[in-house]
Amino acid sequence: MTLRTQHLLGIEQLHPDEIRSLLDLADQYAEHNRRGEWHRDVLAGLTQINMFFESSTRTQASFELAGKRLGADVMSMAMSQSSLNKGETLIDTALTLNAMRPDLLVVRHGQSGAVDLLAQKVNCAVLNAGDGRHEHPTQALLDALTIRRAKGRLHRLNVAICGDIAHSRVARSNILLLGKMENRVRLIGPPTLMPTGIADFGVEVYDDMAKGLKDVDVVMMLRLQKERMDGGFIPSEREYFHRYGLDAAKLAHAKPDAIVMHPGPMNRGVEIDGTLADDINRSVIQTQVEMGVAVRMAAMDLLARNLRAARAPKGVTV
């Protein structure tokens, strides 16, 4: 059970076997978490620094908790208030932190590729907690674990991803992961929120919810990224809810046992009906949050194993 890479930068670099083993380990951690069994020895003696150049509550809390439950020394830095405002470049910040010898660096940044760039300059393990519109690998992994637990498998499923695909790193990572695990992925959204060339990713593209949701097993809603809209992608929020917001009527086109997912934070009444989001028979949104901690524990555990193996004197196995 290992990862081939030093960092977890995206789903793109992962092999299906790596995804499977990571999810298996996360599954165990999820059970341990439910029973309140902590394994503070796993990351004991390691330092984890969370650098969030973009503000985040849930992802940061999830990584922080995951590190603490495994015994790491965790430090979170709100980078929006840091020396970046004093004109320091991303690379200088990375080099400065690197000199403090952290072991795990959890990074979120508003620019696509920024985490890759940073990872080239440090010798610890870097976890991408979301970079621009590029990737958000732990979100896709926690979504996969949630689906696998709810559906009993992670292949040959029809999964619909709905909403603002163009600005979504969650969508990109999920498309890659679900594709690698041999599922059928449909993307549903207005053409203005659909990236160009997306059909070449082996997905089916719909601009109509009723048609797109027909007989799907999983409905994944995306947050309408209001803060990224520099104008005019959709006429209004209410028109968006009318055509693309998930409610009971639209969900009726999906399979009767279809589950509803959302990466959060939700805009109730914009992309998802509030009652539906709270429906414990359909919505697995709370499970996603729970699996988030487990998946991040598994990811950091596996990267720490590589780190220890790389640091061990030659000929010694750990």
Binding site: E12, R169, T196, D200
Partner: peptide, 15 residues
């Protein structure tokens, strides 16, 4: 330039 690769990399692109 817009297309599959720009979408994969999540970069803003022009037709």
């Amino acid at each position: 330039t817009s297309g599959k690769f720009a979408s994969l990399r999540g970069l803003p692109a022009v037709s």
